Each structure stands twice: as structure tokens, then as C-alpha cells.
Simulated assay, not measured.
Amino acid sequence: MLDPLISHPKKGSAGKTGEWRVFKPIVDHELCVLCLECHEYCPENVIEVRDGRIWIDYDYCKGCLVCKNVCKMKAIKAEREFY
């Protein structure tokens, strides 16, 4: 049972991104070797593995690009958002 006095992180705990994100990470699945560094360092916990690939939940991704910066294979690129 979880201790009610301790904060437990969960997916998108700060809420949905909305339209204020400037950049979003894009995964190049051809370069990705599933090392999961991006998953380990994602502050929003929005990166997961499904069907043998990395997937990012853009509803909650804040666009901090930590995942891009820690990717040793350079498999994550930044794409500008246009609203």
C-alpha cells in the first residue's frame, strides 16, 4: 500500500501539455537501439516501450528534450511545433 504522506510520481503529473510546447522529440526507430536512457531520464515519465519501439506520449510531453540530450545514438531529434 502506498504511503499517503509521500508524493508518488505518475505519468504527466503536471498535466497535459496544451499548446505551449515549442519543440517535441521525434524518435528515429532505425537508429534507436532500445537502451532506454531516454526513458530513465524523462522527468514526465512519458516514454515507454511498445511493440519493441520507443513511444512518447505527446499529450503529456513538455518538450524539455532531455531525452534528445541523453540519447547516445542520436535517435531523437527535435521538431518545432506549429499551432
Results as ranks from 00 to 15, higher is better:
G12N: 15
R53P: 02
R50G: 02
R53T: 06
F23H: 13
L2E: 15
K72Y: 03
C64E: 11
E44D: 14
E40K: 12
L31Q: 11
R80K: 13
E19Y: 09
G15S: 11
P43T: 13
G52I: 04
K77Q: 06
N45I: 11
Y83S: 07
E37T: 09
L5K: 15
E81C: 10
K10P: 02
G63C: 07
C64K: 09
K77D: 10
W20T: 14
C61G: 06
V22F: 11
L2Y: 13
C71D: 00
C67A: 00
I47M: 07
I26D: 10
V27Y: 00
D51I: 01
D28F: 03
I54D: 01
Y41V: 08
C61D: 08
R53K: 11
K11G: 12
N69L: 04
E37I: 04
C35N: 04
E44P: 07
M1F: 09
K62Q: 13
G12E: 15
D51K: 08
G52Q: 04
L31D: 09
C71F: 02
D3L: 09
D51F: 04
R53S: 05
K16M: 12
E44A: 10
G63M: 08
V22G: 03
C64H: 08
K72G: 05
M73H: 09
T17R: 14
L5M: 14
R80T: 06
K16G: 10
I76V: 02
K16Q: 14
V66P: 00
L2S: 15
K62R: 11
P4C: 08
L65K: 01
Y60R: 11
I54Y: 03
S13I: 12
V22M: 09
I56P: 07
F82P: 01
E40R: 12
E44N: 11
K68N: 01
D59W: 03
E48K: 09
H29T: 05
H8A: 13
A14R: 15
T17H: 08
M73A: 07
K11V: 15
P25Q: 11
F82W: 05
R53N: 07
A78M: 02
H29M: 02
I47V: 06
E37M: 10
L65I: 01
E79N: 03
F23E: 14
N69A: 03
V22A: 13
R50I: 05
A78P: 04
P4A: 10
V49C: 03
G15L: 10
A75N: 03
G15F: 07
D28A: 03
D3I: 09
K74L: 02
D59L: 05
